[in-house]
Design a protein around this nucleic acid. Structure first.
Length: 137
DNA sequence: GCCAACGTTGGC
DNA sequence: GCCAACGTTGGC
């Protein structure tokens, strides 16, 4: 099963907001490559919630709660959105610094393409991030 | 606040 | 359809 990482500015919408809301529509993804990834997401997939900006850390886990659907705010209907719901907050956030410090992540888009807001996460990376979140870094 | 990287736009 | 100029984003 594929996994994903969704990036968001916490001052705009944080993981705490998602926990409070329970679920939300993940919209505003305009980047073409990010859209391509988003289109591949499926209901039931898991995704990391990454805080960019001040935190720069993976902070929680979400579940994709709907298949991709056309963005109602997009007139041409080319953009898609998905609904996500909060699963759990990580025990400890996994920071970008910690991720960059580990060569296992060197090829990951999060490190290589800082501007990408939706990206796939391999099984190996998923497990490693989860393991890292269990312990203080 | 600055700079680098990437996407997009517009002129040819 | 190509390429340069510009704008935006995100890390430092």
């Amino acid at each position: 099963m594929p996994h994903w990482l969704f990036k968001q500015e916490p001052s705009c919408y944080s993981y705490e907001n998602l926990e409070k809301d329970g679920s939300t529509t993940w919209d505003g993804v305009g980047n073409a490559l990010a859209q391509k990834h988003l289109r591949n997401a499926k209901k039931g997939d898991r995704a990391f919630f990454y805080h960019t900006g001040k935190d720069k850390a993976v902070i929680g886990v979400m579940e994709i709660a709907s298949d991709p659907k056309p963005d109602p705010a997009d007139a041409d209907g080319k953009l898609v959105v998905v609904t996500v719901k909060a699963v759990k907050k990580l025990k400890h956030p996994v920071t970008l610094a910690a991720i960059k410090a580990d060569p296992a992540f060197a090829e990951w888009e999060l490190v290589r393409m800082s501007r990408l807001s939706v990206m796939p996460v391999s099984d190996a990376i998923w497990k490693k991030i989860e393991a890292m979140s269990e312990s203080e870094s």
